[in-house]
């Protein structure tokens, strides 16, 4: 139970570098599916770099909260990422927090993101904050139920232990519990990362945007941190999904194993990204007040998953 500093650094770098790539892939593939050429997968890196170099314009109504928020959002997402096992079966900071801490950190980021949206006093920002917090509130029970299901099976909320349990022979691949919990978490993933049936990440259409509305007043390096933080958060949630439910190829130790683990992990991640792309392309955005219906379906799936844990012995 000691801190492994190289692990921490490695995973931090991996999180920082991989997150924009995943976002870029999703954007590119989505365009391809819609018969457009789309931006190259590296575009997100270029965007971030450009944002960093630009001057910052801050609203004159905004207070110190506005400038603090991007740092909190970014660091909270990064920290949450260090609590998840990515390529290896042990999360580098698993001593510091379990899956509940991860959910808490993501909520912390969201809290400050919403405050940042309110601070400049623009109606768009307020609207975005209001919707973001509402959707998060209805998504949270579904998320927790799905997590509980897995945690109860593993007897622990420690993500490393959950993943190790998933690798053990006790794990059943075709267990309906996992299928339903996965489906619930997938819906939550779509909601939390602002994907299409819930929010449209590509739009700046005033009345439908949620996440973009909160970022409207951000510019320069603040915008870069916000966008980067959002893509890290997306990566963290996707990692959670693939590594809890498909714990193949998580490396134990040794550089070769780790390298292989990274490759397998990337493959799983891209497969999940492809699933997200397909959902995004084949569905239309829901009206705001239909979103709770979707999330209540996720909640029911979570409940069913939980029921199944002790009824399908």
């Amino acid at each position: 139970m000691s801190l492994d500093l190289p692990d921490v650094v490695l995973q931090t770098v991996l999180l920082l570098l991989l997150a924009p790539l995943v976002s870029g892939c999703v954007k590119n593939w989505k365009a391809k599916l819609q018969n457009r050429r789309g931006p190259p997968v590296w575009q997100v890196y270029a965007d971030l770099l450009k944002f960093f170099r630009k001057d910052v314009v801050i609203s004159e109504h905004a207070s110190w909260v506005f400038s603090c928020a991007p740092y909190v959002v970014f660091v909270a997402a990064l920290l949450a990422g260090l609590l998840v096992p990515m390529a290896t079966a042990r999360a580098p900071l698993s001593l510091f927090g379990d899956v509940l801490a991860l959910v808490g950190l993501l909520a912390l980021g969201r809290f400050f993101l919403a405050l940042g949206g309110l601070d400049p006093g623009s109606a768009f920002g307020g609207m975005g904050s209001s919707r973001e917090m509402t959707i998060a509130a209805v998504a949270e029970p579904a998320l927790m139920l799905a997590i509980f299901t897995v945690a109860i099976a593993a007897g622990s909320t420690d993500l490393s232990r959950i993943v190790q349990f998933a690798q053990s022979p006790d794990w059943k691949w075709f267990n309906p519990t996992h299928v339903m919990a996965f489906a619930a978490l997938f819906i939550v993933l779509l909601a939390e990362t602002g994907r299409i049936p819930v929010d449209n990440p590509a739009t700046h259409l005033e009345l439908t945007m949620i996440h973009e509305a909160m970022l409207l007043e951000y510019s320069g390096r603040y915008l870069a941190l916000m966008k980067w933080g959002a893509s890290i958060k997306q990566l963290v949630l996707m990692t959670l999904l693939v590594n809890i439910f498909f714990p193949v190829g998580l490396a134990a130790a040794g550089p070769r194993a780790v390298a292989l683990g990274v490759l397998i992990y990337a493959a799983k991640l891209l497969a999940l990204a492809a699933a997200v792309v397909i959902v995004e392309t084949t569905n239309a955005k829901l009206r705001l007040f239909r979103v709770p219906d979707l999330l209540s379906a996720a909640f029911s799936l979570g409940t069913l998953a939980l029921l199944s844990t002790f009824l399908f012995q």
């Binding site: 075709f174 299928v179 489906a183 379906a297 199944s308 399908f312």
Partner: peptide
């Protein structure tokens, strides 16, 4: 065992579809 798992899984999916039908 595999068969049993498959059946349980598919039955569960039937239930999931039923719930989707409800909403």
């Amino acid at each position: 065992d595999l068969g049993s798992q498959l059946i349980t899984l598919m039955a569960a999916l039937m239930l999931v579809l039923q719930l989707l039908l409800v909403v």
